[in-house]
Amino acid sequence: MNIKILSRNSSLYSTRRLVEAAKKRGHHVEVIDPLKCDLIIEKKKPSIFYKGKILGETDAVIPRIGASITFYGTAVVRQFEMNGVFTTTTGQSLMRSRDKLRSLQILSRARLGLPKTIFTNYSKDVGEVIAHVGGAPLIIKLLEGTQGLGVVLAETQNAAESVIEAFNGLQARVIVQEFIKEAGGADIRAFVVDGQVVGAMKRQGKEGEFRSNLHRGGIASLIELSDEEEAAAIKAAKAMGLGVAGVDMLQSSRGPLILEVNSSPGLEGIEAATGKDIAKSIIRYIERHS
Rank of each mutant, 00 (worst) to 15 (best):
L55T: 09
G243C: 05
R111D: 13
L222Y: 13
K238T: 14
G185S: 07
G195E: 01
G184S: 07
S11K: 14
E165K: 14
G243T: 00
Y285N: 10
Q196S: 14
G84H: 05
E224L: 13
D99S: 08
E128A: 15
L149F: 10
L214I: 15
L257W: 00
G26A: 12
K280F: 00
K53N: 10
I175C: 02
N262L: 01
I282F: 03
D248S: 05
S68L: 05
G84I: 11
A200I: 03
D227G: 08
I282L: 06
R254K: 13
G269V: 06
S281C: 12
L6I: 15
K141G: 06
G127M: 06
A166K: 05
S252N: 07
A220V: 04
F49L: 12
F191V: 00
K116Y: 10
V77N: 00
S47W: 03
P137W: 06
K44Q: 08
A186R: 15
I175F: 02
L142E: 12
Q147D: 09
G148P: 14
S263F: 01
V85S: 09
Q251L: 05
I270V: 15
L107I: 09
G56R: 10
N83M: 13
A186T: 09
A75N: 10
T70Y: 02
H215K: 09
N168R: 07
E260T: 15
Q177V: 04
A200C: 00
Y285T: 04
E128S: 14
E271R: 04
E81Q: 13
T146H: 01
H132D: 07
P265K: 07
G169N: 12
V126P: 01
F167C: 13
V176G: 09
R284C: 10
G169K: 11
S221Y: 12
S290C: 11
D99I: 12
T274F: 05
G269L: 00
Y13C: 01
V152N: 01
S97Y: 02
P34H: 14
F119Y: 15
L35P: 00
L94C: 05
S281M: 01
G184M: 09
I65Y: 04
A159F: 05
A75T: 08
S47Y: 02
Y72A: 07
R78F: 05
L104T: 11
T89V: 15
K4V: 15
H289F: 08
L143M: 14
R78E: 10
S162E: 13
G217W: 10
F80V: 09
P137Y: 13
I223E: 11
L6A: 06
G145L: 08
D125L: 06
I69Y: 07
